[in-house]
Computed example of a mutant assay.
Amino acid sequence: MENSRWRILKGLVGGSFTVRADLHCKYVTRYLNTAYTRLSAVQEQWLKDNPDVPRNRTTLLNQQDAVARRVLPSR
């Protein structure tokens, strides 16, 4: 299944060498798998710590953004 996903991604980006190189690096290092696994764990913990999840969509999106920044800090 991994190879078919990679072929699809390569097809989507067409001739962009930069994007293809970036995707190749992420595929080879399993970067995205690791990042999303960590993001999921942090989000699950936040939900456990906050059983009364705000109903306000903007508040929830801001919380998700904050968690994502802890998992994948900008360089």
Results as ranks from 00 to 15, higher is better:
K48N: 08
A66I: 07
A66R: 14
T59Y: 06
R55M: 13
R20F: 03
L72H: 07
V67L: 15
P51A: 08
G11N: 07
G15T: 10
Q63N: 13
A68H: 02
A66Y: 06
L39K: 04
V53A: 14
I8F: 06
T37D: 11
P54A: 14
P51L: 13
L9E: 03
T37L: 10
Q64N: 11
T29F: 06
V28S: 04
V71H: 04
C25T: 08
E44M: 12
N50S: 07
C25A: 09
L23V: 00
W46T: 05
S74Q: 15
R55S: 14
Q43S: 09
P51Q: 08
V42C: 07
D52F: 12
H24L: 05
R57L: 12
G14A: 08
N3Q: 02
P54L: 09
N33A: 04
W6C: 00
R55Y: 10
P73N: 12
Q45N: 10
R20H: 03
V13G: 01
R5V: 02
E44T: 12
L12W: 03
L39N: 06
S40E: 13
N50D: 08
A41F: 04
A21R: 13
A68T: 06
Q64M: 14
P51F: 11
D65Q: 12
L9G: 01
L12S: 04
L61T: 10
R20D: 02
Q43C: 13
G11W: 01
S16R: 13
A35E: 09
T34H: 10
